[in-house]
Each structure stands twice: as structure tokens, then as C-alpha cells.
Design a protein around this nucleic acid. Sequence first.
RNA 1: UCCACAGUAGCUCAAUGGCAGAGCAUUCGGCUGUUAACCGAAGGGUUGUAGGUUCGAGUCCUACCUGUGGAGCCA
Length: 429
Amino acid sequence: MVLIKHLSEYVGKEVTIKGWLYNKRSSGKVKFLIVRDGTGMLQCVVFKGNVSEEVFELSGNVGQEASVEIIGKVKEEPRAVGGYELDCTDVKLIGESNDYPITPKEHGIEFLMDHRHLWLRSKRQTAILKVRHRVIKAIRDFFDSRDFTLFDPPIITPNACEGTSTLFETEYFDLGPAYLTQSGQLYAEAGAMALGRVYTFGPTFRAEKSKTRRHLTEFWMVEPEVAFNDLDDNMDLAEEFLEYVVQTTINDCVEELEVLERDTTSLKRVKRPFPRVSYSEAVEILKRKGHEFEWGNDFGGADETIISEEFDRPVMVHRYPAEVKAFYMKRDPENPKLALAVDVLAPEGYGEIVGGSQREDNLDLLIERIKEHNLPQEFFEWYLDLRRYGSVPHSGFGLGLERTVSWICGLEHLREAIPFPRMIYRNTP
RNA sequence: UCCACAGUAGCUCAAUGGCAGAGCAUUCGGCUGUUAACCGAAGGGUUGUAGGUUCGAGUCCUACCUGUGGAGCCA
């Protein structure tokens, strides 16, 4: 059996192809079967004289997405998709398919989401899935080649990690309520104290009733955490990381991005150094552009878009008002109203793809913060131990995988960036 | 949670308050190079649900349900 993507090595030879019928056309004594196998598309030509009567009849009756085994001779053919076609000598039906719901015409989003398990077979969706895979590989390659250790945090946690978001709650035997993690970060800090440089990579959960194209209730996040890194080191790491992920992906996914009709000129500019502006400077940008904004608030989606339009590549916004950020972020020694936080805003309206900070490493200040946020200190004793025993400055950030995939693919909505999206009003299929 | 919009054939959509329609899909027939092929024919409907206005409602009104887009929150 030969994969369609490798067909160019078999010109003039007889091969066996196994796949699914994408579409078919016929013209009297000749039938064209367009077959896909997950690696490409192939036009298979069945001439009446070249096959048995049964096979010719079968070729006309295979339904869309029926699985088939096809034997034929490979030839170059500029008229066919992919540049090659198969001159068929035999066609076998493996699994029939009648009345396949997703026809080769337009469909509405509700219908497609209801049939997500089948929608995944389409050209556009397989292209996105391949880009997602390449992004994941780039993420892992980047950290693996820089002395990071993959560190898996728990998914079930006893407390709300940052104390702000709404979490999914479940009963945990006799121990009372437990929650699905919204971030592996606090645990990653323990990992960084053990291994120096770690990254977590896994699903995270938010029960916020967000209903926008930028939100999922279940999404994947990668979170590096590095001992002895300060905020500047953290920003250096984030920009090197983003450059690597974007550049390797657009290099290796040229065909997929073509299917998605993604203009990659702006992605090619994702090179170091990224512009760095403070929160206060970002507020000035908004005001200069005539948008009302009060210092001290967090940026909304529209604000982020306006700020990012000032620059030709991702922009790093640092030193936010501490009040809008999480309790564990270290304050700026030059201005205690500010947190040593950094968000990276992607261009083209894709918004915040990275959020990070230098962490508070002083035991007394951290206890103070926990009290200020009315968090139950007993749940954080283990976290405070990290400051009791050999505390060091350390920093890290989180990158949302689906937002990154959406940005690179140029998607309208995050739901296409993950095989089975979980959203406020949908948990099926 | 709030705001806006939508719901008609399997799908995508039409239909001035006056006979429920088209394209695609499906089935049948035609065509030896098709490119979301094309040509001909057939089958396919409790117009989201419940009320109301009207001689008459897919169309107007009320409530509800479902979905879509956005806000807030966030990655």
C-alpha cells in the first residue's frame, strides 16, 4: 500500500491505494474517483474497457466517503489534482457510505459543528490539524533543545489557582469539591525549583461563560517556568520562542497554509526583536488614537487590536497595574503599583497569545498577597514552601495553543483549531 | 449574565399577509477527460414550539426553545 503523498516515487508502476472517496464524476464510459487518504488527494480514472463490468458498475455506485482499495498504474497528469493520477485496473469497496451528510456544497456552522466528527475529514480541517501538529512539535522541539524538562502538572486540583476564574467543579470522594485546573503554573514553579527549567503542556479548563470567537472552555496551554529568570529574561525567552514556532511552522506547512488561503507576509515578519512597550505607554497609544481608556483597567479585545495595529509584529506589553493581575506576580521595585507582568499581543486582531510574569519570590509579600485576595492560605502552604526553602527569582509564561494555531492559520474562530472544541453551549460530539 | 440577529426539504437559501419554491445531495436515465463536471426525470415539507391578530399567517404580535455574532472575563 502506498500513501498518496509518496506517489511521485511510483510513476509508471502499479500501486495499491487505500482511502476514502472524496468526490466522483463520470462521463459515459469513464469515471473519475477522487480519493483521499489523509496525506493527499488522488484522481483515479476508471475506463470501461480497462476493468471488469462489475468493477465499472461499482465505480459508479461508491458513495461519498466510502472507503476503497484501488489498484492502478501511476502516471503524471497535469489535469489532475496533485499532478498525478491512477489508471485503475481494480476497485474494491471496503466500507460503504450512503447519504454522507456533508456534501461538497456550503453548510452552516451549526450543522458542521453537529457533524464535527465527519467535518474533520474535509480538506480545510485536515490542513488545520496538520498545522496544529506542527505547532505542537515546534513547541516541544524548542524547549527540548534548550535544556527544559517536560513537567506534567495535575489536572484535578483542590483549589482555584489564581482565585479569579470560575472553575469546573467535581466531587472528589470524601475530600469534598475539587476543580479542573485552569493553569499548571503554580505546579510548574515547584518543577522549576526541582529541575531549573521546565515546561508544562496540556489541557486547561475555564468555566467562564465566555461566548466569543477567542474562547473555549477546554484549551491547551504550554507554560515554561525558569528559575533565576527575571522579567527581561522572560521576555527574551518569549520572543525567541514565538519566532521559532511561527517560522518553523510556516516553513513546513506551505501547502496547508495555501489550502487555508493564509497570506503569510505578516507571519514572515515575526522575527526578533519584538517591540516592547509598558502598559502606561500602551494606554498612551489608545489615547493618542482617540480611544477613551482609564489607566488601571485591563485591555479589552478591541483595545488589544488597536495597540497591536501600531506595530508590524507581535508586541510585548509589560508592567501592568498589579490590581488587574494575579496574586503571585512580583511587584515592580520601582513602582509597587505595577506587576512585573508581560502579555504578548499578536497582530491582525488575534489578541493575547502569551501571558506571563516574574513571580513573587518573597515569602512575607506572597502571604500578604494571598490575604489581600482572600485566598485560603492553607491550600497554598506547599506553594509557600517554595519560598521557604531556597527561594529564587523566577519567571514564566503561558501560550494558548489554539489561539496560536488560529493566528498562524488565519482562522475566524478558535473552534476550528482543536479537533473537538468545548464551548459554553456545546460539549458534543 | 447582558445586547443583537436568525430558525422553511438531508444541506444552503427564496417566497409583497393570498397555490410551499430553487440549487446541491439521493434514486433513475444520457455522455470516453471530468475539475464543487454537465444534460434530462423522479421522490422529498406538521415553515423551531405554544398561543394570539386576521376571511386568510412561512410572513404580523406575545412567550418559550435552539443556534449564531458580540460584550464582560480570559489564553
